[in-house]
Design a protein around this nucleic acid. Structure first.
Length: 400
DNA sequence: TCTGGGGTCCTAGGACCC
DNA sequence: TCTGGGGTCCTAGGACCC
C-alpha cells in the first residue's frame, strides 16, 4: 500500500469546453467569440463557457444573470444535449477502438489504462496519436494527462488545458503537486477547501504537513484520501463499466409556487417519465424518493422502500404520499424532484396478489406509443392540469 | 449574484436481529 | 434488572463531480 507504482500508466482525456466546441462545430461563426451555454430562463446557471467568456470572469455553475452582467456581449445558447450526447458517443467509439482498457468517466472524460503495454515513452506517443485521431475525426479539441494513476493524470490534464497534453512521470509527481492550491485535488470542493483554510492549508505542500491521524479525525475516509492524494497516491482502478444505481429528475420552477394541484401533477409527470425510462432499460426499482426545495432554498427529501416495480400507478401513489409528508409548510416551493434507486435488472414482475397481467399489456402498449411519438405524447389524466397538458415548457423541461 | 440537473459516495442515528 | 456488542438495513442530509 502507498507509494507510487512507476509501472502504472494511466491516461486521462478531457474534451475542452465540450459543449462550446460542439456548438462551434455546428456553426463556425461562433469561433473566437465569447459563448455561454446554460439553462434557459432567468434562474439558470452556466454549464459551459468559452475561454473568451472566461476572460471576463465567467465560469461554469455561475448564475446566468451574473454571467450576463460580467460579459454582456457574450452569445447565450440554451444547449443541445442531443448533439452533445451524439458527439460524446463518437469520441467514445474512437477511444474504445484504440484502448485496451478504458473508462468513460463523464460525458466528456475518459481514463485509459496502459500499464504493461510499453514503457512510458511508448505510452506518451500512443496517447498523442489517439488525441490526434479524436481531433481529426470529430473536429473537437481534446487534452490529456499521462501519469502513474487516475488522480495525477486528471490534475495533469487540467494543467495541459486548453488543447494540450502533459506527462508526469513518477519522480516528478511530488514536485508537480506541491505548489498547487488544494482545490486542484479532485475531492476538494468548496467546503473542504474552506475548512482546510482554517487549518492554515492553502497548497498541497501545506496539506502534507498535517498528520494523517488529524486528517482522519476531521474528515473520516475523506481524510485518508486527502493524506494520500497530497502525496500523489491513488490506486483507484480504471473501470470499464458500472451499473447505473439511480435515476432522477428534478425541476426548478421559473417562479416559486404554492399551487398544490400543479405540484402534484408535475410530480406525476416526473414519475411517469422515470418509470418509462426504467422499463425501457428493463429495470426495476425498490426505492423512491421525493425532493422539495422551498423558496428560501431549504431542501428536504423523503424516501420509502417498496417491492421491486416499474409500475406507474404504484410509483405515483408512493410519490404523492411522500410529497404529502414532505410539504408541511405554507411556503412557496422552488423545486420538486423524484429519484428512483436500488435499481436491478429485470423485466416487470407480475404480482400474483394483484391481477396485473392486463396492466403489463397496457404499459407495453403505452410505451410503444411513447417510443413512436416521443416521451411526452401520452400521460395519465392526473398529469393533465388546467385542461391543458400539465407541463408548459417554462414549468418543466423534460431534457436534462 | 439568490444559487441547474443528473449522478456517486459517505455519514450518522435508529431499528432490528442474534 | 439499570443495561452487551456486532452486523445490517433504512432514512435523511450533505459533499462532490461534470
Amino acid at each position: 500500500m502507498g507509494g507510487l507504482d512507476p509501472n502504472r500508466a494511466i491516461v486521462h482525456m478531457d474534451l475542452d469546453t465540450f459543449f462550446v466546441s460542439v456548438e462551434r462545430k455546428k456553426d463556425n461563426r461562433l469561433n473566437g467569440k465569447p459563448l455561454i451555454i446554460g439553462g434557459t430562463g432567468d434562474r439558470g446557471v452556466v454549464s459551459s463557457c468559452s475561454y473568451e467568456a472566461r476572460a471576463f470572469g465567467v465560469h461554469s455553475a455561475m448564475p446566468i444573470r451574473l454571467a450576463k452582467r460580467l460579459c454582456p456581449h457574450a452569445i447565450l445558447i440554451s444547449g443541445d444535449f442531443e448533439a452533445y450526447s451524439e458527439h460524446s458517443h463518437m469520441v467514445s467509439d474512437i477511444v474504445k477502438e484504440a484502448s485496451p482498457l478504458y473508462e468513460k468517466a463523464s460525458i466528456d472524460e475518459f481514463y485509459i489504462d496502459l500499464s504493461g503495454m510499453e514503457r512510458f515513452f511508448g505510452s506518451y506517443l500512443w496517447a498523442r496519436d489517439l488525441r490526434n485521431k479524436v481531433m481529426d475525426e470529430t473536429g473537437l479539441p481534446i487534452s490529456f494527462g499521462l501519469s502513474v494513476n487516475k488522480m495525477v493524470a486528471k490534475v495533469a490534464t487540467g494543467e495541459a488545458k486548453p488543447n494540450g497534453h502533459l506527462q508526469i512521470v513518477a519522480p516528478q509527481v511530488s514536485g508537480f503537486l506541491a505548489p498547487m492550491p488544494v482545490q486542484k485535488i479532485p475531492l476538494v470542493g468548496k467546503k473542504t477547501a474552506q475548512s482546510l483554510t482554517y487549518l492554515g492549508v492553502k497548497t498541497v505542500s501545506n496539506l502534507r504537513e498535517i498528520p494523517r491521524p488529524v486528517l482522519e479525525r476531521v474528515y473520516g475516509k475523506q481524510g485518508t484520501l486527502l493524506y494520500r492524494r497530497a502525496r500523489g497516491e491513488d490506486d483507484a482502478p480504471v473501470i470499464p463499466y458500472t451499473e447505473q444505481k439511480s435515476m432522477s429528475t428534478e425541476s426548478t420552477f421559473s417562479q416559486d409556487t404554492i399551487d398544490i394541484v400543479k405540484l402534484r401533477s408535475v410530480l406525476t409527470a416526473m414519475v411517469e417519465k422515470l418509470a418509462f425510462g426504467l422499463r425501457k432499460q428493463r429495470k426495476l426499482t425498490a426505492c423512491i424518493s421525493v425532493k422539495l426545495r422551498y423558496a428560501n432554498f431549504e431542501t428536504f427529501t423523503r424516501q420509502a422502500r417498496i417491492p421491486y416495480t416499474a409500475n406507474d400507478d404504484v410509483l405515483i401513489d408512493k410519490a404523492l404520499h411522500l410529497f404529502t409528508r414532505l410539504y408541511d409548510r405554507r411556503i412557496r416551493v422552488r423545486l420538486v424532484g423524484v429519484r428512483l434507486s436500488h435499481l436491478v435488472p429485470g423485466g416487470m414482475q407480475i404480482d400474483l396478489f394483484q391481477d396485473q397481467v392486463r396492466q403489463v399489456d397496457l404499459f407495453q402498449a403505452l410505451d410503444g406509443i411513447k417510443r413512436k411519438y416521443g416521451g411526452s405524447s401520452i400521460g395519465k389524466a392526473s398529469g393533465i392540469y388546467g385542461g391543458k397538458r400539465a407541463l408548459r415548457r417554462e414549468d418543466y423541461t423534460g431534457e436534462l
